[in-house]
Amino acid sequence: MSLNLKKGVSKQSAYNLRDPNLDYEAAHTLSIIVDNESGVLARVIGLFSGRGYNIDSLTVAEVDPNGHKSRITIVTTGTPKVVNQIKAQLNRMVPVHEVIDLTLKGKAVQRELAIFKVVGNGNHRVESLRLADVFRAKVVDSTLKSFTFELTGTSEKIDAFAELMVPLGLKEIARTGIVALLRGDNSN
């Protein structure tokens, strides 16, 4: 008894059998309160890589030294079903205390900090300083040939500034990734 299969393996994956309407992807900003213990970041990251979820941005730092709690802010992209899975999987982890989906919870303040090194002479140099002023970027270091700017804002603002700096001699950027909190007087 043979099943008359074509040789070789199809490029189609099992997921192509799914309802295409479920595949509407959106970015979500998740704020995750965790115990600040060794390996906690690896656990969270391992969950994302192990289950094939995306990480667009990631920040982490201790926010409650007495309670040993850190806040991890992750921007991830996925269908509503996947994002719900991510939250449920995160909530299952022992050191995870709270997972807040800022995208669903309402308006959130989202900020990123970036440092730009721009090297140039003459007009380029003047123009970069003028644009920095427009963007309210601060000069944090300078040589006769370069400026180092610090800029805080939304990711879009930082993208826009970076784009403008490219023809003016942008050499390097360092970005923190997004940190975010809900607007208003409610905590989370």
Binding site: M1, S2, L3, N4, L5, K6, V9, S10, Q12, N16
Partner: peptide
């Protein structure tokens, strides 16, 4: 049990 044409496995199925 007995095999027939219509229950053959598709390419989609073969990767599973």
């Amino acid at each position: 049990g007995e095999q027939t044409e219509e229950n053959s496995i598709s390419d989609d199925g073969a990767v599973l």
